[in-house]
């Protein structure tokens, strides 16, 4: 298809519809609202269903219902709304329901502001709600990936029967870039576990209760095994100019774009620096980090948060190499020059 100049937030919806999403439920919040706007426009045009829920709590539970019925379903929000969805996401993880959740991060805590931030990292990559669960987290950094990773999110959600996040920040959501959408294709997913309201599915049950501790332990173990499989099979990352790098920078979303420009500038000054951009935040590219740890001198993690992903990088390296950190918070986006200064300071 021809390229289309489109906002990341809208690309999410076209991608979702191409992936066969049938039901959208959501509550407006800046900077994610364009997702709801686009959904309310396109879902009905395709004979699918858009509904503005009364809250994020309601919306995620509507997704819970639709996913129980075996259809592809999604919701989208930002920080405060994601907090509200956590109960429902825990239930969906426990009941093993595929739901795609988009989080376009804004400044926090509390009402914070609507500028781009990355303070939701912990709440989306570490479970976020109660209980022993995780969700797959995909982190697009451009409008094209907003489409592509949303489509992938639906596939992964169904394959592993788990909630999957498409997780980025206000800038990536609001920005327009050219996107090449794939042609619509037939989407058929068999879900023999779903409660479809017919004779075949009459014995099916969607449930997260296991009264007997041994049974609940077994259920938990099954979930953990699933997460381990995901860690083995689904890690995705992107690298840039790492071949001879002495310093590896790391960042996701808009930060990875800033890093890329900073690296180009640093390289012009002869500094050997590259980029490792996790595309999946869970599963986290631990192995790649460890492998790089064996050959580079140090790492620099840049985040628009108080330092959340950097903890995972340190955990992967277990002290093998120094991990430097540069951050801005409150919706302040680090500039290329700030990052460049930090790189120079480390490599001097």
């Amino acid at each position: 298809m021809a390229k289309e100049l489109i906002k990341g937030n809208e690309a999410v919806i076209k991608g979702a519809l191409l992936a066969g999403c049938r039901n959208y439920f959501g509550y407006p919040i800046t900077p994610a609202s364009e997702i709801a706007h686009a959904a309310s426009k396109y879902f009905p045009l395709l004979g699918r269903s858009f509904l503005q829920g009364e809250s994020e709590v309601a919306s995620i539970n509507m997704c819970y219902g639709a996913a129980s019925a075996g259809v592809r379903t999604m919701t989208a929000s930002s920080g405060p709304g994601i907090s509200l969805k956590q109960e429902g996401i825990s239930y969906a993880a426990g009941s093993e329901l595929p739901i795609v959740i988009v989080d376009i991060q804004r400044g926090g805590p509390g009402l914070g502001n609507i500028a781009p931030e990355q303070g939701d990292y912990n709440q989306v990559t570490k479970g976020g709600g109660h209980g022993n669960y995780k969700t797959i987290v995909l982190a697009p950094n451009c409008a094209q990936e907003m489409c592509d990773l949303t489509m992938l999110a639906f596939d992964l959600a169904d394959e592993y029967r788990t909630p999957v996040y498409v997780f980025t920040d206000g800038y990536i959501g609001q920005m327009m870039e050219p996107v090449e959408f794939p042609k619509a294709r037939e989407i058929k997913v068999e879900k023999d576990w779903a409660v479809w309201g017919n004779r075949e599915s009459r014995d099916n049950l969607i449930n997260s209760i296991y009264l007997e501790p041994l049974e609940l332990e077994a259920h938990n173990q099954k979930l953990q095994d699933k997460y381990q499989l995901i860690e083995e099979k689904e890690v995705m990352f992107d690298t840039y100019r790492l071949d001879d790098a002495e310093l590896v920078t790391m960042g996701y979303g808009i930060v990875s774009r800033i890093l890329k420009t900073a690296i180009d500038k640093a390289r012009k000054k002869g500094l050997k620096v590259g980029l490792l951009r996790p595309i999946t935040l869970f599963p986290f590219p631990n192995k790649k980090i460890q492998e790089l740890g064996n050959r580079v001198n140090s790492f620099l993690v840049v985040e628009m948060s108080n330092g959340q992903m950097v903890q995972d990088v340190k955990l992967a390296l277990l002290g093998a190499k120094p991990v430097y950190f540069y951050n801005r918070m409150g919706g302040v986006v680090p500039t290329v020059n700030e990052v460049l200064n930090k790189i120079e300071e480390i490599l001097k």
Partner: peptide
Amino acid sequence: GNVQAAHGRAPAVATGL
């Protein structure tokens, strides 16, 4: 068919179904 819902959320889950 049976679906178990979170506390108070049955009408939202019903809506989705």
